[in-house]
Nucleic acid binder design. Structure first.
Lengths: 214, 214
DNA sequence: TTTTGTGAATTGCTTCACAGCA
DNA sequence: TGCTGTGAAGCAATTCACAAAA
């Protein structure tokens, strides 16, 4: 295959931002957008936008710009979110339950089809946000992953349990993990991992602010 | 000033990861670490670790490595988290309350000293995680920011209200925003903004997984 | 010997600038 | 004219490789 891994990672990240912006434009009824407009709304140059999209194909119309509806379809196709994906949630503590009740997932094509916790005393308990889902013990995860073709898991357990939980997720057949525990997971390179660490973000802001003015 | 803005942004991001790892090493009683060990635990080369730390000073000892305790102090100093920072939370809905009860902030030197919501009917309501804090109306934010020297705010309101809320935060005197709303905030360049969008992370994982195998 | 710190070489990303199309 | 798509140029970040220190 020619393209795929020669595409810069930063370009793929921005692709998600373009999609988010395009969906906002679609919602406000805009039919067409230029690379200049799209870039400006995200603090990027027009050339950056065109180059990024260019890695994936030719979607624009010279003299016109990009058709919003069409480009949304194409970008979703590239990211693999044009079909609904089932995901599972691991960890039914405070953060896990907050994520379970988060509406944004389904809007973007992700459906939570199971929530698991190593504390079996929680098993059977229903969830505020997901009335069709009850908390299940970890050992049930593999069968849910298999029967519902789940590939992605969200990890929301305390840091000390996270590495073990991640291993269980991989053993259950998951291929990607969105990790909310503040540790660096050790996994096989074939497993996609993305870590969200609030402390890291606060530290970055702290550094930026320390830089300019007191 | 010589260094500051010639430091690559990726290096600053990794600095937070080094700190996280160093704190874990400290917790498990490790006194000294080499660039090779530190890099390996984060999936980075030893040269990368040394080069990154080299942007900020000389912290290592040839033949020995880096003293964990000392390096933690230095990195916290660089990031500006060696002293406690007060932060405010904007948005007392589900995500906001989940963030309020998050213990990780104080461990990293950030203390939530106020929570605000534009829905004044919530005002006065106490919070599960922060018993000393009650929800306050937005108009109280400016005085809290001033009296408690708050510079950083966490924005956790629905997307349609986020741009307005951000403007109010800036007007109240905040200099940095950790944004959980899935939009690109339009703010003055002097304001530091970091956006956490779960959908973006899921899309990135989806892309990576679509890449390798079905 | 082990490991740091750092110029030099390399790789990768972004910006430029313009041909081509509507 | 207005805008895309894209090689070429320029810039930034990473890796290499080695002198110096413990």
């Amino acid at each position: 295959m020619t393209g795929r891994d020669s595409i810069p990672a930063p370009a793929v990240q921005r692709l998600s931002l373009y999609l988010r912006q395009l969906e906002a434009l679609q919602f406000s009824g805009v039919g067409t957008v230029s690379s200049k407009q799209l870039g400006r709304s995200l603090g990027l140059s027009d050339a950056q936008v065109r180059k990024d999209l260019g890695y994936f194909g030719q979607f624009g119309h010279p003299g016109v710009g990009y058709r919003v509806d069409g480009l949304i379809q194409r970008v979703r196709g590239i990211l693999g979110t044009d079909k609904v994906s089932n995901v599972v949630l691991v960890g039914a503590g405070n953060p896990g339950r907050a994520l379970a009740s988060f509406r944004g997932f389904s809007k973007k094509g992700f459906e939570v089809v199971g929530i698991f916790d190593s504390d079996s005393s929680l098993a059977g308990q229903p969830l505020a946000g997901l009335p069709t889902c009850v908390i299940q013990p970890m050992r049930e995860m593999a069968v849910v992953v298999r029967t519902k073709s789940v590939r992605l898991g969200i990890l929301a357990v305390p840091a000390p349990s996270a590495q073990t939980a991640a291993a269980e997720m991989v053993a259950a057949g998951l291929r990607g993990i969105l990790n909310f525990a503040p540790i660096s997971l050790q996994t096989d390179p074939s497993i996609a991992v993305s870590t969200v660490d609030l402390a890291v973000h606060l530290e970055q802001l702290s550094f930026q602010m320390t830089g300019s003015a007191g």
